[in-house]
Design a protein around this nucleic acid. Sequence first.
DNA 1: GCCTATCCTGAATGACCGTTCAAGACCTCC
DNA 2: GGAGGTCTTGAACGGTCATTCAGGATAGGC
Lengths: 216, 216
Amino acid sequence: MTKAALAAKAPEERRERILRATIAVVRERGFAGARVTDIAVEAGTSQGLVLYHFGSLAGAFAASLTLLEDEFYEELERNLSEVVGPVPRLRHIAELGAGYGPAVGDWRLWLELWVRAIRDDDARAARESLDTRWRGALRQVVDEGLAARVFATSDPKASVLRLAALMDGLAIQLALADPGMTTGKFTELWWKSAVLELGISPVNTATGPQGGRKKR
Amino acid sequence: MTKAALAAKAPEERRERILRATIAVVRERGFAGARVTDIAVEAGTSQGLVLYHFGSLAGAFAASLTLLEDEFYEELERNLSEVVGPVPRLRHIAELGAGYGPAVGDWRLWLELWVRAIRDDDARAARESLDTRWRGALRQVVDEGLAARVFATSDPKASVLRLAALMDGLAIQLALADPGMTTGKFTELWWKSAVLELGISPVNTATGPQGGRKKR
DNA sequence: GCCTATCCTGAATGACCGTTCAAGACCTCC
DNA sequence: GGAGGTCTTGAACGGTCATTCAGGATAGGC
């Protein structure tokens, strides 16, 4: 049965490989430039199989969005759990945005998603869900900070909205490699706004003392 | 000669009409969805003429970007001159972003430009120029305010960067009609940030007294 | 060990669309 | 008033894909 079980999983694995390939290709060429053939090659299968599983190219796009959502959620949670205490956590978020990984590529993917969301309902739903979740996470950190009295804001919801929007706006410049924008500047610009927005006192600004990053 | 002069202008007028049509079509369908035929129909001419003037569809896109830049500059200047004094001017900017016109459509065009800028050099150059100019205008207002001692910031450049980025970020939500985002909220969220960022005292917050909008 | 449903392939199909082109209109300048 | 350039047209061309399809492989149930 072990062999059977493994074998039974094969089609499912193929399917997922195609979804990952779809995301990779979109990241590379954008929705507008992604071809069925590109996806098939990237996934190491045939065009036919892409269509067999998802019915159409648009279907593959749509399906890949839900994978994207799932992974985003997962990674977000993993990332935030790495760090304790509202201030370090917020600082961590500032650094996450700049990303230690292939952040520029990721932000480009985000831009692609925004534009697709203008005209495609699946994309619209996905980006809305992603954004809501993301703002929710930020909100949670803010609430923690308020409860601990290290943050102060009269309108947490508005503060979160602004901080989230600021990150998107800075991300555009990062994604487009605007001259003068670097990951370091990204982090510092956002962090400074967060400090201002949430009335974090300079005493609390240092990340060292009350918690801090675990590593990396 | 009057008739001759008018006639001589005709080709040039056609050309410009095509460029405007190009922008209109891109606004409507995005770069990815804009066809030569769409542009021709929108401009009331033939496909052939579009290619005759601009060599290729990409050429028409590129040329339309410079028209876009020109008009953006012009409108920006016109808009800012409508109002005097740093605080009212800043407030005016907050309202401009939300736009009393077809702002949502315009922001969508902006999104399109951002994504195209990822892979197309003309678009990259255009958006960079647009953005630089825009930040320059904001900077000028900030400097005015600093000189008049109604604004206070330790790092005007960073403040401008943040306020510009925040506007872009909020614009995404406006463009995508994120539930809960309206033009009114857009203005207020941004304005509140500007007040915080530039240390505008509540006394100066009211737009009425020392200058204010002219009308509309 | 066959049978059937699922999975998979890649060649064939056909639509779409950018670009080319041959022809004609129109203007200007001589 | 006509020669020669610039404009303008729309039909024809050719390339690029998404999608279809006919046929195989594979595997689990009988």
